[in-house]
């Protein structure tokens, strides 16, 4: 049948739509980064004296999150080969890595000495990392839904494009975090 198909091949609607949507998300984070750099440029006292970030531990968490991108890719490979158990396994691993990252973030929030109301830096720090954390959380929910609805045992539909879309999102979240880590923790 496929040989007879003279149909113009078009990329899937959801795939294109997701890429378009993520490009818009880039601008959302760009707005937050712009705010960070604007405030940083104007403030001689940046970051303020009471700010002590656990850079080493967060670097580790960053490595975990980056690793989750690779496991996500393995999940995509599994989906393309229609190996469902492998797909579910890699998705679960990815979720676990994401959860580790979020746990680190929660610990950090709990032990930091400043709050969102302390100073402009505090506001910026919590908003940047908080919105990213929410995106990670959303990604975990997304993967959970993919496992439950698309890749689960009761389903026989090809999971390829759904998992692909999920992976676009997850890679995006990872890349944003790498930029954020470099900005907030390394560059300061």
């Amino acid at each position: 049948m496929a040989a007879a198909a003279s149909t113009v091949r078009r990329p899937s609607l959801v795939g294109v739509g997701t890429v378009v949507w993520l490009s818009s998300e880039i601008m959302f984070f760009a707005g937050l980064f712009a705010a960070y750099f604007t405030l940083r440029a104007k403030d001689a006292d940046w970051p303020p004296a009471d700010v002590e970030l656990a850079t080493g531990r967060t670097a580790l968490a960053t490595a975990v999150l980056v690793a989750s991108s690779f496991t996500m890719h393995l999940a995509v490979r599994a989906a393309e080969a229609d190996q469902r158990p492998r797909l579910v396994r890699w998705l679960v691993v990815t979720m676990a890595l994401g959860a580790v990252f979020l746990t680190n973030q929660a610990f950090e929030y709990a032990e930091l000495s400043f709050s969102i109301s302390s100073h402009a830096y505090g506001s910026m720090f919590y908003l940047l990392t908080g919105f990213h954390g929410l995106h990670v959380l959303g990604g975990l929910g997304f993967m959970g839904a993919v496992i439950a609805i698309v890749a689960g045992r009761s389903s026989r539909a090809p999971a390829g494009s759904t998992v692909a879309v999920c992976s676009y999102y997850w890679h995006f979240v990872d890349v944003v975090w790498v930029a954020m880590f470099a900005t907030v923790y390394l560059l300061r």
Binding site: L39, A41, W46, P48, S117, S118, H119, A120, Y121
Partner: peptide
Amino acid sequence: GARFFDVDAGADPLL
């Protein structure tokens, strides 16, 4: 209670 636009807290009115 964030202080993005509070100049006393190190914010920038042009932001």
